[in-house]
Design a protein around this nucleic acid. Structure first.
Lengths: 195, 195
DNA sequence: CGAAAATTTGACATGACTCAACTGGAGTGG
DNA sequence: CCACTCCAGTTGAGTCATGTCAAATTTTCG
């Protein structure tokens, strides 16, 4: 079942991974199951774990003063969850993370992640690769957010993340894009018509 | 003069830095001076260097199909410049980077950066610290972009980056925030009045 | 089937954009 | 030192994209 993580790890590294190393990883990371709507992280908490999703889907969001949720990040299988700011700075998070579906997650603490990175070259490579991919992806998102109108951001999103379109309802995606569900609904009507 | 970089490096690492190590770094990184308006990187080029700014200011931006510039990133002393996507993927960049003022930059190639990271623990720590800080900062920017109206984004910006407010004209900052210069002008009028 | 969640639709309000004109430096050259 | 130009910033009028609110409709799922 954690095979999924093994495949992920080896796909992101060039160094081979021995059986002992893998056992070491499995002895360190803990599998936890989150039921739908269960919190992975709540506003005010410090993010002590990062999690690799084996199955399921989660969302990270902020609630503003008016009580509106703003989706910061969506994650499904083979993605990680956690609040990087809280995790690295050890400060209380301003975000919530919860399970949108029942979700299996492999958890790792910061200390364990450092130990694994030091002990296992493949693991270290993976960690670096994740950060690289993440920074590139988020850079694109900033670009889209500041320079594109709603419909273009949506087309962009569908192109970049077709998996997520299937997985989350429109009002969640609208929030992720920084628009209202009504606007997304209208945008889609045109989008579908014109292909 | 490169003392500035030495201070920066040591401030971001816990490991001490020997004189030989420092000499090694200085022998590897190259100082280049960019005159105002000179390109550091042009759309279509592959980003072969990252640069640490010793003095001056640069901007990274995209030009859309209508010819409008969208500021992706602003950098001054003690910040880095470069397009992470092009740099890591070795793909042609969609961005331009140019000098807003005459700017002194310490350049490093990807290969050299890896060599230095492997050879010098302090350097490696610095590189990791940069990425951490960067991802946290950009995460906040996404949050602002998708969940705040123009005036709040500006207040936010002034709070987070007072140095940049001094350094760049308003139309540049407006573009960075994803609004027009006219809107920023109006927003500021209220902002100044109300404190 | 029934309730809750998601989506769509319409009418209206508003924030932000566009375009154009005007003002006010900052730098440059005669 | 003035005249000139370039660039930045402001302002106003009109438009457009998106948000708000409320209701109707469709889908999902227990």
């Amino acid at each position: 079942m954690s095979e999924r993580f093994r495949n992920y790890l080896t796909s992101l590294s060039t160094t081979p991974l021995s059986e002992e190393q893998w056992d070491h990883i499995m002895a360190t990371m803990r599998l936890k199951i989150f039921r739908k709507k269960q919190y992975f992280l709540q506003e005010g908490d410090i993010c002590k774990y990062f999690g690799f999703i084996i199955s399921g889907a989660m969302r990270q969001y902020r609630v503003d003063d008016k009580g509106v949720e703003h989706i910061i990040r969506l994650s499904v299988e083979d993605w990680w969850v956690g609040d990087r700011e809280s995790w690295t700075m050890l400060t209380p998070s301003i975000y919530n993370i919860d399970a949108w579906e029942n979700t299996e997650v492999l958890l790792v603490t910061k200390a364990d992640l450092l130990r694994l990175s030091n002990a296992i070259p493949a693991y270290d490579e993976m960690v670096r690769a994740i950060i690289e991919k993440y920074t590139i992806a988020i850079q694109k998102r900033v670009n889209a957010a500041i320079s594109m109108p709603a419909h273009m951001r949506y087309e962009n999103f569908v192109r970049e993340y077709p998996q997520l379109v299937q997985r989350f309802p429109q009002h969640i995606i609208a929030s992720y894009l920084g628009i209202t569900k009504e606007t997304l609904s209208r945008v889609r009507k045109l989008y579908i018509k014109q292909g």
